[in-house]
Protein backbone atom coordinates (compact mmCIF):
# COMPACT_ATOMS: atom_id res chain seq x y z
CA UNK A 1 0.00 0.00 0.00
CA UNK A 2 0.89 3.67 0.37
CA UNK A 3 1.71 4.39 -3.22
CA UNK A 4 -0.74 7.20 -3.78
CA UNK A 5 -2.31 7.94 -7.10
CA UNK A 6 -4.63 10.86 -7.84
CA UNK A 7 -6.20 11.38 -11.25
CA UNK A 8 -8.07 14.50 -12.39
CA UNK A 9 -9.25 15.43 -8.93
CA UNK A 10 -11.74 18.28 -8.85
CA UNK A 11 -13.34 19.84 -5.81
CA UNK A 12 -15.31 23.07 -5.45
CA UNK A 13 -16.76 24.76 -2.40
CA UNK A 14 -19.65 27.16 -2.13
CA UNK A 15 -19.27 30.22 0.03
CA UNK A 16 -22.49 32.18 -0.19
CA UNK A 17 -23.00 32.91 -3.88
CA UNK A 18 -19.35 32.36 -4.70
CA UNK A 19 -17.89 29.06 -5.87
CA UNK A 20 -14.32 28.45 -4.82
CA UNK A 21 -12.13 25.97 -6.64
CA UNK A 22 -10.32 23.74 -4.19
CA UNK A 23 -8.82 21.27 -6.65
CA UNK A 24 -8.70 21.68 -10.39
CA UNK A 25 -7.87 18.48 -12.30
CA UNK A 26 -5.07 17.47 -9.98
CA UNK A 27 -3.15 14.35 -10.97
CA UNK A 28 -0.33 13.01 -8.88
CA UNK A 29 1.67 9.81 -8.32
CA UNK A 30 3.46 9.26 -5.02
CA UNK A 31 5.65 6.24 -4.45
CA UNK A 32 5.87 4.31 -1.24
CA UNK A 33 8.43 5.71 1.22
CA UNK A 34 8.33 9.17 -0.32
CA UNK A 35 8.88 12.28 1.74
CA UNK A 36 7.16 15.12 -0.04
CA UNK A 37 5.85 18.59 0.56
CA UNK A 38 2.75 20.23 -0.81
CA UNK A 39 3.52 23.91 -0.82
CA UNK A 40 1.71 27.02 -1.89
CA UNK A 41 -0.06 30.04 -0.50
CA UNK A 42 -3.21 29.87 1.60
CA UNK A 43 -6.17 28.70 -0.50
CA UNK A 44 -3.95 26.97 -3.03
CA UNK A 45 -5.57 23.57 -2.32
CA UNK A 46 -2.89 21.87 -0.18
CA UNK A 47 -5.19 20.98 2.68
CA UNK A 48 -8.03 20.06 0.29
CA UNK A 49 -5.74 17.60 -1.48
CA UNK A 50 -4.48 16.21 1.82
CA UNK A 51 -8.06 15.77 3.09
CA UNK A 52 -9.07 14.05 -0.14
CA UNK A 53 -6.13 11.61 0.04
CA UNK A 54 -6.91 10.93 3.72
CA UNK A 55 -10.57 10.27 2.98
CA UNK A 56 -11.72 13.16 5.16
CA UNK A 57 -13.41 14.80 2.20
CA UNK A 58 -14.57 13.31 -1.08
CA UNK A 59 -13.65 14.93 -4.42
CA UNK A 60 -16.40 16.03 -6.82
CA UNK A 61 -14.75 14.02 -9.58
CA UNK A 62 -11.55 12.13 -10.31
CA UNK A 63 -10.07 9.14 -8.58
CA UNK A 64 -7.75 8.54 -5.63
CA UNK A 65 -6.04 5.24 -4.93
CA UNK A 66 -3.85 4.28 -2.00
CA UNK A 67 -2.26 1.02 -2.97
CA UNK A 68 -5.13 -1.10 -4.20
CA UNK A 69 -7.79 0.90 -2.39
CA UNK A 70 -10.04 3.31 -4.29
CA UNK A 71 -10.53 6.01 -1.68
CA UNK A 72 -13.08 7.95 -3.76
CA UNK A 73 -15.37 4.90 -3.93
CA UNK A 74 -15.34 4.00 -0.25
CA UNK A 75 -18.26 4.31 2.12
CA UNK A 76 -18.03 6.44 5.27
CA UNK A 77 -17.40 3.35 7.39
CA UNK A 78 -14.70 2.04 5.07
CA UNK A 79 -13.01 5.44 5.08
CA UNK A 80 -13.06 5.50 8.88
CA UNK A 81 -11.52 2.01 8.97
CA UNK A 82 -8.81 3.11 6.52
CA UNK A 83 -7.99 6.22 8.55
CA UNK A 84 -7.87 4.21 11.75
CA UNK A 85 -5.58 1.46 10.51
CA UNK A 86 -3.64 2.76 7.52
CA UNK A 87 -3.18 6.51 7.76
CA UNK A 88 -1.64 8.69 10.43
CA UNK A 89 -2.73 12.32 10.74
CA UNK A 90 -0.77 15.20 12.21
CA UNK A 91 -2.65 18.48 12.37
CA UNK A 92 -1.55 22.07 12.76
CA UNK A 93 -3.16 22.55 16.16
CA UNK A 94 -1.87 19.30 17.78
CA UNK A 95 -5.48 18.24 18.35
CA UNK A 96 -4.96 16.02 21.33
CA UNK A 97 -7.84 14.95 23.57
CA UNK A 98 -7.43 17.36 26.48
CA UNK A 99 -8.72 15.07 29.25
CA UNK A 100 -6.33 12.24 28.39
CA UNK A 101 -2.65 12.08 29.32
CA UNK A 102 0.03 11.73 26.63
CA UNK A 103 0.04 7.98 27.19
CA UNK A 104 -3.76 7.71 27.10
CA UNK A 105 -3.98 9.81 23.93
CA UNK A 106 -1.75 7.29 22.18
CA UNK A 107 -3.46 4.31 23.85
CA UNK A 108 -6.95 5.48 22.92
CA UNK A 109 -6.35 4.95 19.20
CA UNK A 110 -5.01 1.47 19.87
CA UNK A 111 -7.98 0.65 22.10
CA UNK A 112 -10.32 1.56 19.26
CA UNK A 113 -8.21 -0.64 16.98
CA UNK A 114 -8.78 -3.51 19.37
CA UNK A 115 -5.21 -3.92 20.61
CA UNK A 116 -5.18 -5.86 23.94
CA UNK A 117 -4.68 -3.69 27.05
CA UNK A 118 -1.24 -4.93 28.11
CA UNK A 119 0.16 -4.77 24.62
CA UNK A 120 -1.09 -1.24 23.94
CA UNK A 121 0.38 0.12 27.17
CA UNK A 122 3.85 -1.25 26.27
CA UNK A 123 3.58 -0.06 22.71
CA UNK A 124 2.44 3.44 23.71
CA UNK A 125 5.30 3.74 26.22
CA UNK A 126 7.81 2.64 23.58
CA UNK A 127 6.51 5.00 20.91
CA UNK A 128 6.49 7.97 23.31
CA UNK A 129 10.10 7.17 24.19
CA UNK A 130 10.88 7.01 20.48
CA UNK A 131 9.53 10.54 19.91
CA UNK A 132 11.51 11.79 22.90
CA UNK A 133 8.79 11.98 25.53
CA UNK A 134 10.01 9.36 27.99
CA UNK A 135 9.03 10.43 31.51
CA UNK A 136 6.21 12.66 30.30
CA UNK A 137 3.67 9.92 29.68
CA UNK A 138 1.31 10.92 32.46
CA UNK A 139 1.16 14.61 31.61
CA UNK A 140 -2.02 16.09 30.24
CA UNK A 141 -1.74 18.07 26.98
CA UNK A 142 -2.09 21.34 28.92
CA UNK A 143 1.05 20.41 30.87
CA UNK A 144 3.13 19.95 27.70
CA UNK A 145 4.75 22.55 25.44
CA UNK A 146 3.59 22.98 21.84
CA UNK A 147 6.49 20.92 20.52
CA UNK A 148 5.85 18.16 23.04
CA UNK A 149 2.15 18.10 22.19
CA UNK A 150 2.99 17.80 18.51
CA UNK A 151 5.29 14.90 19.33
CA UNK A 152 2.42 13.17 21.14
CA UNK A 153 0.31 13.78 18.02
CA UNK A 154 3.08 12.19 15.92
CA UNK A 155 3.28 9.24 18.32
CA UNK A 156 -0.50 8.83 18.02
CA UNK A 157 -0.23 9.03 14.22
CA UNK A 158 2.43 6.35 13.88
CA UNK A 159 1.46 3.99 16.68
CA UNK A 160 -0.73 1.92 14.40
CA UNK A 161 2.25 1.60 12.05
CA UNK A 162 0.58 3.27 9.09
CA UNK A 163 2.17 3.25 5.69
CA UNK A 164 1.17 6.85 5.13
CA UNK A 165 1.31 9.95 7.36
CA UNK A 166 -0.50 13.11 6.31
CA UNK A 167 0.68 16.25 8.09
CA UNK A 168 -1.12 19.55 7.64
CA UNK A 169 1.05 22.53 8.60
CA UNK A 170 2.63 20.51 11.44
CA UNK A 171 5.12 23.24 12.37
CA UNK A 172 2.81 26.24 12.06
CA UNK A 173 2.57 26.72 15.82
CA UNK A 174 6.16 25.77 16.65
CA UNK A 175 9.32 27.83 16.99
CA UNK A 176 12.17 27.17 14.57
CA UNK A 177 14.16 24.92 16.93
CA UNK A 178 11.15 22.74 17.75
CA UNK A 179 10.16 22.70 14.07
CA UNK A 180 13.61 21.40 13.16
CA UNK A 181 13.38 18.69 15.84
CA UNK A 182 9.97 17.62 14.55
CA UNK A 183 11.18 17.48 10.95
CA UNK A 184 14.22 15.45 12.06
CA UNK A 185 11.78 13.04 13.71
CA UNK A 186 9.72 12.79 10.51
CA UNK A 187 12.84 12.10 8.43
CA UNK A 188 13.96 9.46 10.91
CA UNK A 189 10.58 7.71 10.84
CA UNK A 190 10.53 7.92 7.04
CA UNK A 191 13.94 6.32 6.81
CA UNK A 192 13.65 3.73 9.56
CA UNK A 193 10.02 2.67 9.07
CA UNK A 194 9.63 3.46 5.38
CA UNK A 195 6.53 5.54 6.15
CA UNK A 196 5.35 7.77 3.30
CA UNK A 197 5.07 11.39 4.50
CA UNK A 198 2.96 13.99 2.72
CA UNK A 199 3.36 17.36 4.39
CA UNK A 200 1.28 20.40 3.49
CA UNK A 201 3.18 23.56 4.40
CA UNK A 202 4.12 27.02 3.32
CA UNK A 203 7.11 27.07 5.66
CA UNK A 204 10.27 27.17 3.52
CA UNK A 205 12.32 25.58 6.33
CA UNK A 206 10.05 22.54 6.20
CA UNK A 207 10.22 22.43 2.39
CA UNK A 208 13.99 22.24 2.67
CA UNK A 209 13.68 18.79 4.28
CA UNK A 210 11.72 17.29 1.39
CA UNK A 211 13.12 15.36 -1.54
CA UNK A 212 10.07 16.11 -3.59
CA UNK A 213 8.36 19.49 -3.61
CA UNK A 214 4.98 20.00 -5.19
CA UNK A 215 3.80 23.57 -5.59
CA UNK A 216 0.14 24.40 -5.86
CA UNK A 217 -1.70 27.57 -6.85
CA UNK A 218 -5.48 27.98 -7.16
CA UNK A 219 -6.12 24.26 -6.86
CA UNK A 220 -3.65 23.27 -9.56
CA UNK A 221 -0.18 21.71 -9.41
CA UNK A 222 2.18 24.25 -10.91
CA UNK A 223 5.47 22.61 -9.98
CA UNK A 224 6.70 19.11 -9.11
CA UNK A 225 10.43 19.13 -8.37
CA UNK A 226 12.96 16.76 -6.88
CA UNK A 227 15.57 18.35 -4.67
CA UNK A 228 18.43 17.42 -2.39
CA UNK A 229 17.14 17.72 1.19
CA UNK A 230 18.94 20.45 3.11
CA UNK A 231 18.78 18.59 6.39
CA UNK A 232 18.20 15.00 7.36
CA UNK A 233 18.74 12.90 10.39
CA UNK A 234 21.05 10.00 10.21
CA UNK A 235 19.17 6.74 10.04
CA UNK A 236 19.33 5.02 13.40
Amino acid sequence: MASVSCKDLCKTFSQGDTTITGLDKVSLEIERGSFLCLSGPSGSGKTTLLNAIGGLDQPDSGSISIGELRVDQMSKTELAEMRLHSIGFVFQAYNLIPVLSALENVEFVMQVQGVPAGQRRDKAMAILAEVGLAGMEQRLPAQLSGGQQQRVAVARAIVSEPALVLADEPTANLDSKTSAQLMDLFIELNQTRNITFIIATHDTRVMAYCRRLIRMVDGQIVGDDLQEPAAAAEPS
Binding site: L56, A80, R83, L84, F89, F91, N95, I97, V109, V112
Partner: peptide
Protein backbone atom coordinates in the same frame (compact mmCIF):
# COMPACT_ATOMS: atom_id res chain seq x y z
CA UNK B 1 -17.47 19.60 18.48
CA UNK B 2 -13.84 20.16 17.51
CA UNK B 3 -12.65 17.31 19.69
CA UNK B 4 -15.20 14.96 18.17
CA UNK B 5 -14.05 16.15 14.73
CA UNK B 6 -10.49 15.10 15.56
CA UNK B 7 -11.62 11.69 16.73
CA UNK B 8 -13.68 11.22 13.58
CA UNK B 9 -10.64 12.24 11.50
CA UNK B 10 -8.53 9.65 13.32
CA UNK B 11 -10.97 7.00 12.14
CA UNK B 12 -13.10 6.63 15.22
CA UNK B 13 -16.65 5.83 14.14
Amino acid sequence: TREFGIMLALGIK
